[in-house]
């Protein structure tokens, strides 16, 4: 089974369903739109900030604030790409056509990841430039130290959120169950764990909390995070690898 054939097939699959367009479209629109709004509000509020908060003002990270919501659309994209095979029954047809389950799963994930990467990077660059354009004198420049890394990192973050969701969906198979676990986890639980001092130490190592570090240019003043931008990104990548291995092992073992 030539992998190029399967990659081509998976590309046809992904481009021929409307959920791809509306999930990725929503991710772009929400991330950029909300990012501009928050950037504008934050720069207007700058004069009211205390000295400590002014020190930690991170114009780059603020322009990515919309991704907190936009990532939910990336999660839906990642879940639907994989779990729709199961909810529609297509999986039996797909595995009859490509019985090498590893080839099938990783070609599917490769195509979806590439698409998420392109969309994620475009979103990150537009969100950055649009966000900075409304921040007046507080804006950051792409040439500033660490800014380019943060912008590319934001695109990578959006990509990995989608890939992590693909791995979880491959394990759980049901789109409703996958979304029912991932949505509240990333929208609520992770934030709560990360912001309560007692659980902060655990929260720091969750995939999204660790991954967000790469979008920071200016560290908060009393930052005690035990890893840097790429360290955080590495932790997130480990989560993604674990989810993919889990998905692969279960797909290999289970009856379709």
């Amino acid at each position: 089974m030539a992998a190029t054939q399967v990659l081509r097939s998976e590309w046809t699959k992904i481009r021929s369903v409307s959920s791809t367009v509306w999930t990725l479209g929503l991710a772009v629109v929400v991330s950029i739109g909300l990012g501009i709004l928050i950037s504008w509000l934050a720069s207007n509020d700058f004069d009211n900030l205390g000295a400590k908060d002014r020190m930690g003002f991170d114009a780059t990270a603020i322009s990515f604030a919309g991704m907190g919501l936009g990532q939910l659309a990336m999660i839906v994209f990642g879940v639907l790409v994989v779990a729709n095979e199961y909810s529609t029954g297509m999986i039996r047809t797909s595995l009859s056509a490509v019985p090498q389950r590893g080839t099938f799963l990783f070609c599917k994930i490769a195509v979806a990841t590439l698409l998420a990467l392109v969309v994620g990077l475009i979103t990150a660059f537009i969100a950055f430039f649009a966000g900075q354009s409304v921040m007046g004198e507080h804006k950051a420049s792409i040439g500033d130290a660490g800014v380019l890394r943060a912008v590319i990192g934001a695109g990578l973050y959006m990509t990995l959120i989608a890939v992590f969701s693909m791995g979880v969906a491959a394990m759980l198979r049901s789109p409703m169950l996958s979304l029912g676990i991932l949505m509240p986890f990333f929208f609520l639980i992770s934030n709560i764990l990360g912001n309560v001092s007692a659980t902060e130490k655990i929260g720091q190592f969750l995939p999204d909390q660790a991954g967000l570090k790469i979008m920071e240019v200016v560290s908060p003043v009393d930052d005690d995070t035990p890893y840097g931008p790429w360290g955080g990104f590495g932790i997130m990548a480990l989560w993604v690898v674990a989810a993919l291995i889990g998905g692969y092992v279960l797909l290999k073992k289970r009856d379709a």
Binding site: S19, N84, G89, M90
Partner: peptide, 10 residues
Amino acid sequence: LDAKAMHGGR
């Protein structure tokens, strides 16, 4: 195997 083993949106 099953006539409905396909993605209805495609």
